[in-house]
């Protein structure tokens, strides 16, 4: 087994959740790395969509922004942003929405808007972008983030995008027909919502991780499934694919600057 970091494990575990048939709406950062590792390993025909309008893109390096030129050059087609949100996302054509989070609660509700009160924020974060509608229009949602008590919190400061709300059938009560968050991939574990309460429950821990590690980096009382599994360690192919992708990305983005 090749040695690996927790972040590499997170990205690779996330990539395994995607299949060849998926049509995936990709967020920047960790989701983008995971989606492209999937494409470069077990899911070569996966359709990756970035909200800039690029459909079926296959970048050689990870984009720095959601609108890098290479996304367009390698895409099957590029549509306008209104068309992207109306026909493709709202139209129900996306199977998986892949989101990150600044703050997350146990029901998969996400905050990327403000820390502190909305009118007088302690930290003004970038905001929701496409996420409020991604969270309700994609057939299901995967969330990926590194565990930390300031990120995985009892109560989020703002409901940027809706997960399972208060849990249970809250989505159905609001008339939302999609599944919402079905998987949380962290640097320590895989979590799935409880079928009834919809609370995220640890179903698999990455190699070497203890229950204490998971609890110490999470702001709510963690529930563990009966029979928690161990996530298979990254294979050599997965690790070299991810590292090569990141090395290419580093070279491409670290380059020259204009005058």
């Amino acid at each position: 087994m090749m040695p690996f970091t927790p972040t590499e494990m997170m990205t690779i575990a996330a990539s395994r959740a995607l299949s060849n048939d998926d049509v995936c709406f990709v967020g920047i950062g960790a989701p983008s790395a995971a989606c492209n590792v999937a494409r470069l390993t077990h899911a070569p025909d996966i359709t990756l969509i970035y909200e800039s309008g690029t459909i079926g893109t296959a970048p050689e390096v990870l984009p720095l922004s959601i609108g890098d030129g290479e996304l367009c050059e390698t895409a099957v087609t590029t549509v306008s942003v209104p068309e992207m949100f109306r026909y493709w996302l709202q139209g129900g054509r996306i199977s998986v929405g892949f989101l990150g989070a600044a703050q997350l609660d146990r029901f998969g509700n996400i905050n990327t808007t403000v820390i502190g009160p909305y009118d007088k924020p302690k930290v003004r974060l970038p905001g929701g972008g496409g996420a409020p509608e991604i969270a309700t229009s994609c057939k299901e949602i995967f969330i990926t983030m590194k565990q930390a008590t300031r990120g995985m919190v009892e109560t989020i400061d703002f409901f940027t995008s809706f997960g399972h709300g208060e849990g249970g059938d809250h989505r159905q009560r609001l008339g939302i027909t999609t599944k919402g968050p079905t998987l949380l991939i962290t640097d320590l574990a895989l979590w799935r919502p409880d079928p009834q309460t919809k609370e995220f429950t640890v179903v698999s821990m990455h190699p070497g991780v203890t229950r204490e590690n998971v609890q110490d980096t999470c702001g709510w009382k963690v529930r563990f499934a009966d029979g928690v599994e161990e996530t298979p360690a990254p294979t050599e192919l997965e690790l070299t694919t991810l590292r090569d992708l990141q090395a290419r990305t580093q070279r491409a983005h670290g380059g020259k600057k204009g005058n």
Binding site: F85, P132, T136, F159, T160, S161, G165, G175
Partner: peptide, 10 residues
Amino acid sequence: VFRGYRGAGL
């Protein structure tokens, strides 16, 4: 008019 903002704090 669009299908949006469901459950969203904005």
